[in-house]
Design a protein around this nucleic acid. Structure first.
Lengths: 327, 327
DNA sequence: TCCTAGCACTCTATTTTCTCGATTGCTAAC
DNA sequence: GTTAGCAATCGAGAAAATAGAGTGCTAGGA
């Protein structure tokens, strides 16, 4: 258990280090506290013994350890209000009613990336409430068809398929069958239904049922799949902890790996903070993320930055966005 | 006019500099040529006077100037055959018939970016031959519609629109009108036709014609717009000329600016080389690009790398791809 | 028991100096 | 026209010197 004074010292070191990006010495602290630098040094030593602080070399000032950041965000961080300017900028997005949710998310996270210099990720999954509304097939050429699928929440997906030797009649029959049998089904159940209810039936009626089946299967897979977008990637370059080219390459590669990014999905409804090794992405970054959910969509938004991140501000901003979206 | 010997010296300096990334001294050259280093130095001095070579400092070896590279690509470069491995890798893409053209382009440029360590851009425009095939409107909710547009080449685009107070009847009337009047129109003429033939008519029939008109206008704009994709962006990090963070940031920002990238479009049918200041993108890079054109699509593919680029190889690879695509 | 002044010590970061080696331009001779 | 020889230049890197920030420890005072 830390004393009040230890807590203030830890807090100062974290905030000053976040602000200045240089190890914090005892003198800086003792100016703000009513005690001598020697006293501060003694306390710092104890905090270091507790694993909350670290030194970069034997006679350097202290920087927070991951455990120190963790203590800070769990016990010491105070959420400030968003500044008027921040609110103003974000409002331009939220008050624009003509935008779709995914645009709202991307634009607001662009703003956040912009004002914070961190990188954001939007992981956009279709809501489970999304139901199949309509399937349509448009012939565009001899043997070439486009299957178009629409959900009741307005999601549209399409796929081109090539079928030689299948008559338009057969295709239409299949489409009608699908429309009759699975319209209204939640999208994440569609694939199963397609396999077990539609496939056996069309296998009898339709000659090239495999091709048809596969095409629709693909469309349904696309439509129920997650969509991930990275915003403000170049902001990585703005932080001194990412100043060597191989580290930059490393992080950029990770941010390009969409499949891996889909794993950041957060079920939990809070603002969650994963510091350094606590996240699976990279031990040198902190990921702050939260889940959002509306009738139409659900997903995860995340902010990624160095461990020396402006925790208060990011938590506030994410919280604001989450509330606005979930309205 | 350069002498034969001057040309071989220039050629050696360019190829050696491309290979080793270090200024090339007279000794390296004179080993390969039947003359002394002093002779080579005399020639180098003349080449420098002609603006074909440069020094990094007073007693350094020589590097090619932009003019030197230009002379090299115009007069000295010899195109080698693609290696068996290169052809093999690319063939896996071209022999895969189930891929759409845009996938073929992106994948083959991924391979090229991979084996060359350069960055590629695919600028994919819809062909002028692309004609409107069908327009469809799907109501998804009270007041919310999705407009779906399909072209005869199988391009699909959609847009959600919100119209309160317009009856489904009116919408259907508009759709029928559009279908009747402009199906078959090349997509780049659709916008004009929409404005001058459709708009005046629906203005009479339909109450909220503005909203309907705008929605369709947006869809048609999307469908006829260019699509640009950057492949292998992180390869920028592999070249020593891009080793400082602010330069990296600079180039990455440019590669993220899709609007600017659309300007790389190349009308000319050759393989075109823009060295340093010859390109509008960045004075430190070389852009090699070519136009491609099939019945369905047309566009531009470009390779971007440092000026010290493996010109022969890139030209060959681009040429190979262009021929494969245009079949 | 807690706090603090004082001090030797450690280490970084920066500047300076030095040296090595690569390469040049020039000159004079072939 | 070519070449050998040579002084001069400069970069890159090592080594040395210096300044400054910050620490840990000790001993005395509240």
């Amino acid at each position: 258990m830390l004393t009040k004074r230890q807590e203030s010292i830890l807090k100062m070191i974290v905030t000053e280090y976040i602000r200045l990006a240089k190890p914090v010495g005892s003198k800086l602290i003792c100016d703000k506290l009513n005690c001598s630098s020697a006293t501060v040094r003694n306390e710092m030593m104890q905090l270091e013994d507790l694993g909350l602080l670290e030194k970069t070399h034997i006679s350097s000032g202290r920087i927070p350890s991951e455990k120190g950041y963790r203590y800070y965000v769990d016990h010491l961080m105070q959420l400030k209000e968003l500044s008027g300017e921040e609110v103003y900028k974000l409002e331009t997005v939220f008050k624009n009613n003509s935008l779709e949710l995914s645009d709202v998310l991307n634009r607001s996270l662009e703003i956040i990336s912009d004002i914070t210099s961190y990188t954001s990720i939007v992981l956009d999954a279709k809501s489970h409430d999304n139901k199949l509304k309509e399937i349509n097939v448009v012939p565009v050429d001899k043997d070439i068809l486009i299957a178009i699928v629409v959900t009741d929440q307005g999601v549209v997906e399409h796929k081109t398929m090539e079928i030689s030797g299948v008559s338009l009649e057969e295709v239409k029959k299949t489409v009608k069958l699908i429309n009759d049998l699975i319209v209204g089904t939640p999208i994440d159940e569609v694939s199963a239904k397609l396999e077990f209810e539609i496939k056996p039936v069309i296998a009898k009626y339709v000659k090239q049922h495999e091709i048809l089946y596969n095409a629709f299967y693909d469309v349904f897979t696309d439509i129920s799949s997650k969509n991930v977008n990275v915003v403000g990637k170049n902001n990585i370059l703005k932080h001194q902890e990412f100043s060597n080219v191989s580290k930059i390459n490393d992080i950029f590669s990770k941010l390009d790996n969409k499949e891996m990014l889909k794993n950041i999905e957060e079920k939990n409804n809070d603002i969650n903070i994963y510091i350094g090794h606590e996240n699976k992405m990279d031990p040198d970054v902190t990921v702050i993320k939260t889940n959002y959910k509306t009738s139409k969509d659900e997903g995860t938004i995340a902010i990624i930055g160095p461990k020396r991140m402006d925790y208060d501000r990011v938590v506030n901003l994410l919280d604001y966005i989450k509330k606005q979206i979930e309205g």
